[in-house]
Design a protein around this nucleic acid. Sequence first.
DNA 1: ACACGGGGGATTGTCGACATTATTAGCGAT
DNA 2: ATCGCTAATAATGTCGACAATCCCCCGTGT
Lengths: 232, 232
Amino acid sequence: MARSELGRPAPAPEVGPDVYRRLREGIIAGRFQPNERLVEANLSRMLGAGRTAVRAALVRLDQEGLVTREHNRGARVRLVSDLEALQIEEVRAALERLLARQAAAKATATDIRELRHVLVDMRKRLSSGDAIGYSELNPKFHQLIWATARNPTAGRLVGTLKSQSLRFQYQTMLRPGRPARSLREHELIFSAIVAHDPEAADSAMRDHLEEVIETLRWAIGHKSRPPRWLPD
Amino acid sequence: MARSELGRPAPAPEVGPDVYRRLREGIIAGRFQPNERLVEANLSRMLGAGRTAVRAALVRLDQEGLVTREHNRGARVRLVSDLEALQIEEVRAALERLLARQAAAKATATDIRELRHVLVDMRKRLSSGDAIGYSELNPKFHQLIWATARNPTAGRLVGTLKSQSLRFQYQTMLRPGRPARSLREHELIFSAIVAHDPEAADSAMRDHLEEVIETLRWAIGHKSRPPRWLPD
DNA sequence: ACACGGGGGATTGTCGACATTATTAGCGAT
DNA sequence: ATCGCTAATAATGTCGACAATCCCCCGTGT
């Protein structure tokens, strides 16, 4: 195989992980419809990799809850119902509360500085009317809390949960006056962490996510029709 | 292929899932040492399956947190440090609290009957001095709560977490007087569920698991040496 | 017209082989 | 004797092919 003239022998193609990442991104970004069949041969051609790599990626995504696999029946993009989304959010809330608590207990000066930086950015964007820019920073803020908590297990789990329910998040931010309140709630969480007050961080995070859960609960009650089953 | 004379065409070999289950059981049962290398060719011969099936199983177990895989370096049985075990238990506690809460809210008469049945058995075994028999029933009780909560997401997560930290559980039950107190705590949780009191179920479960966490915290502080690295 | 059964196509499950990479042992130079 | 380099070995990454299975369609009989 041809190798680069200087230095490293081409930084390792790493086909396997790449296929996994691309498939995952494709699903999360919505490039595959929910409940759409994921045929291994198609993906293989599409991603330019062997079927084995695709297969391994599908196994991972299955365990991660992004696709479902039935024996001898192939894989489909997992369709998470409204009720499942609610349950996922409930679990996520429990984990985020734990993480906020631990973040408050363990936060260093550097952690706090980074958190403050993101929060300042959020305030800036919101006051300039950039609501979507604000919601783009939202995950960043939470991820910083996860990092501060130094609990890789909880961090990993909450990350995968978020990717599962990502499709529903827009519903929550569209409510009038929501962004402003969201910012206030974030500031409360930040203050609790700065004060190294785990109890306050816990309840602040609880209040923050309660809103999301309440919205989903409301959405379930007022659903006109049960979620459609898209045939192919 | 030879098929049975009557009815079904031989209940489907299903090599893949079987390999996964056997490997998983082997690791949990301790038949593989922590940090032991898991060579695909060996396992392939050992389990009588192709290397692909073994590989798929390893991918799943990696994502599940039971083995670690490094690129081009193979798989090893994941060694969970004391600190990781503590973090895992903290997460598990958060999830079990949520599940207890939801179980209290949703418990039907059948759920309660089954829970009572297990609890009676536990009491019986404990009063007859069968401490190990008691601790065998312990998971059953918790699983019943998970089922009662009707939250598959949380149930699945807490199940995988338990399998990760299973090796540390013996430490907790060996403390003198622990089984008796454990039974009392279980009875408190049960009462809260019967009374359909989510708040009480939450705090009862919190108190119950606090003991386990405290034990692990103590174990970390009094560790004589950092966990050894077993070569091969 | 409808139920039942067979056949064809498509898709997955499984396997062994080949290429690539990390590791280790050996050898020679300093 | 120790260090650095090279070559052999072992294990993984990747691939295509074959067999087993399922699904759908169509023909047939009532």
